[in-house]
Simulated assay, not measured.
Amino acid sequence: MKYLAAYLLLNAAGNTTSADNVKAVLSSVGIEVEDEKVSALMTALEGKTVADLIAEGNEKLSAVPAAGPATGAAGASTGAAGEAAGEAAEEEDAEESDDDMGFGLFD
């Protein structure tokens, strides 16, 4: 990911997106550069524009299924348990707020 980020930074700045420039960007911020990864990136991006890369990424993201809502029966059965847990948490919060006796850490 860092190699692609360096490539995109160079492109956005209008600089030449060569392997040497990608290595220079990464080295300038103290990242150890692996030559194999830089060459693999340059090979994968050969002949593609940034717009093409963004379009490919959007296609891949749209292919990921979204999680649906829980079923009504499961939600109803957990509702009572959730209410009981909520009441217990409220009681604990009330007890904890009394512990400081009105003095806060930064008062």
Rank of each mutant, 00 (worst) to 15 (best):
A19Q: 12
E96I: 14
A74C: 00
A51C: 00
E83I: 08
L45Y: 04
K37A: 10
A85L: 12
T71S: 15
L41G: 07
A73G: 01
A67T: 11
M101N: 08
L10Q: 03
A89S: 06
E92F: 09
M42P: 00
E34H: 11
A5V: 15
M101D: 15
A76W: 00
L41C: 05
L61V: 09
T17D: 02
E59W: 01
M1Y: 11
N21I: 04
G79M: 05
P65Y: 01
A13K: 14
A80P: 07
T43P: 01
E87H: 04
E56M: 10
V29G: 03
L61G: 05
A13V: 01
T71K: 08
A66D: 06
L45A: 11
L26F: 08
L105E: 12
V33T: 04
V25F: 00
I54C: 05
D20K: 10
A19N: 02
S77T: 02
A85G: 03
A12Q: 08
G30L: 07
V50I: 10
E90D: 15
K2A: 15
K2M: 08
G14A: 09
G104Q: 07
E36P: 00
E59N: 06
E92T: 13
K23M: 06
G72A: 15
L61T: 07
T78G: 09
A80T: 15
D93L: 15
D107I: 06
A94S: 10
E90T: 13
K2S: 09
L9F: 04
A84C: 01
G104A: 14
D52H: 06
A74N: 07
K37Q: 13
L9D: 07
A70Y: 01
S18A: 11
Y7R: 09
G47T: 02
G82P: 02
V38G: 01
V29W: 03
A63K: 15
L9T: 07
E36F: 05
V64D: 01
G104I: 00
E59Q: 10
A81P: 02
Y3D: 03
A84Q: 14
E95R: 09
S62V: 03
E83N: 03
L9M: 11
M101H: 08
Y3K: 05
S97L: 12
A5E: 13
A6I: 03
S18Q: 03
A74P: 01
A12V: 02
T78D: 14
M1S: 14
A63M: 10
G72D: 12
L61I: 13
P69V: 07
E92C: 03
F106P: 00
A94H: 13
A85C: 04
L9E: 06
Y7I: 01
E90V: 15
N58C: 02
S77G: 07
S28I: 00
Y7N: 03
D52S: 00
M42S: 04
S27M: 02
E92W: 03
L9Q: 08
